[in-house]
Amino acid sequence: MTKHKPSKSRIVFNVFNYAILGISSLIAILLFVHIVALSFSDNTAIVSNQVRFLPVGFNVEAYKMLFQDTRFWRAFGISVRRVIIGVSINMTMIVLIAYPLSKYTHQFRMRNIYMWFFFITALFSGGIIPMFVLLNDMSLLNTVWALVLPTAVPVFNVILVLNFFRQLPQEIFEAAEMDGANEFQKLFRVALPISKPVLATVLLFSIVGHWNSWFDGILFSTTIDAYPLQSYLQTIVIRQDFASAGITDPDSIAQLSNISMKTAQIIIGMVPVLMIYPLLQRYFMTGIVLGSVKE
C-alpha cells in the first residue's frame, strides 16, 4: 500500500479525533483520580465536600481496615476460585452449545428446538426465591457451585459466538470433512483457532461478570464467610439510616468513614479486572470477521 501524504481535511479530522478521544480519556482519568483521592482522605474532609483530586487529610485507614480483615482475604480467595471455575464452565458451555446451534435446520433438524429451549430461559425466570429454595434443597448454598451453575450457560454470549461461527467460510469445514474430521474435530481444530476475537470478547465478559457479581453471592450464602469479594465489600458499606438501624452509640457513628471505605473497596475490587483488558487486547486485533460483508 502506497502511503499518501495526508490531505488537509485528513489533518483537521485527526486533530479533532485526537481531541475528542483525549478529552474523553481525560474525564475518565480524572474520575479515577478523584476516587483514589477519596479513598485516602479523612472523614471530616469528605463529609465537608473538600476532596477533589488530591487527598485531604491523607490517611490509609480505610485500606488498613480492609487489608487486616481476614474475612476480606477469604472473600478474595472465594472470588478467585469462582472466576476460575465459573469462566471455565462458561467458555466450555458457550463453545459446546454455539457450535451445534450455528448449524442450520437443513443440516441439523432439531436445531431450532434447542435454540428456543435455551432462549426461553433468558427471558422467563421464576425469580430468586425459587432459585434459593432449589439451591437449598440441593445443599449447594454457601458453595462456589451456587455461584457458577445457575449462570453456567450465558445465552447472549452463546448467540454472539454462534453468529460468529456462521460467518466463518464454510469451505474450511468442508475441507476438514473431506479429510475425515468429525464434528468435535471440526469444532476444536478448525473453528476455535480462528475465532479468537469473539472468544476473547466472551472471555472478557465472563471474567468481568463473575468478578463483579455481588448480589448472588449475598443471596445464596447464609453466612458472611461464604461471600465472594464484591458481596463482602457490599456488606461493610455503612447504612445511612441510623434510626432504623437503631444505633445510638455515638462512638460507632464517629468511626464511620463510609465514603473512604466505599472508595477503597472500589479500588481494590476493580483493579484486578482493569488489568484484564490490556492483556486481552491483542486478541481483538487479529482474526477473521465478526460480521462479514454479505451480498
Partner: peptide, 10 residues
Amino acid sequence: DPTASSNLAR
C-alpha cells in the same frame, strides 16, 4: 448491622 459487622472484623 454493617457497623457492628466491621467492628466484629476488628
